[in-house]
Amino acid sequence: MRNLFAVAVLSSIYSFMMASVVLVLDAPDVALTEAAVGAGVGTVLIVGALYLTKTDESPPIHGMFLPLVVAAGTAAALLFGVSDTPPFGDPSNPVTALGPDYIARSIPETGIPNVVSSVLASYRGFDTLGETVVIFTAGIAVLMLLKRSPARRRGDGDKGG
């Protein structure tokens, strides 16, 4: 597929389907985020970037053999590890061991029925502060890269460009 607009639209559809899958896996909060951010804002940003650059991909000049070997090798290594992981959905999985603890503590300690909210903002407040700072930093970096118009940049030479 050489037209990059099609890639933007397909990735939007993919995000929306990922949101549905995540909803089936009991994570409505994540599904809401993925649908709003991945399928909505992300597509707008990709299309905006395509408007500023080029909308067509030039045909590849390298063969696809080496990337395929790398991808297949990675897949083989990962598949080798799968059999040692706990089965899907088993309540005795080590991953889910702490879940009942959070769920039992949320209402007595914070009065919040949505455990995702209480873990996000209270039990893991530092984590979320860090994520907010990352979003802030990325926003500032985008503004630094794109705020100055190309015409003005040429005006004051190539310094800092």
């Binding site: 985020t33 951010v37 919040i112 029925p113 949505n114 209480s118």
Partner: peptide, 14 residues
């Protein structure tokens, strides 16, 4: 967001 699915990240994105 405290009682159903939602919170600052989702609301901000919407």
């Amino acid at each position: 967001g405290d009682y159903g699915a939602g919170g600052g990240f989702q609301a901000g994105a919407i």
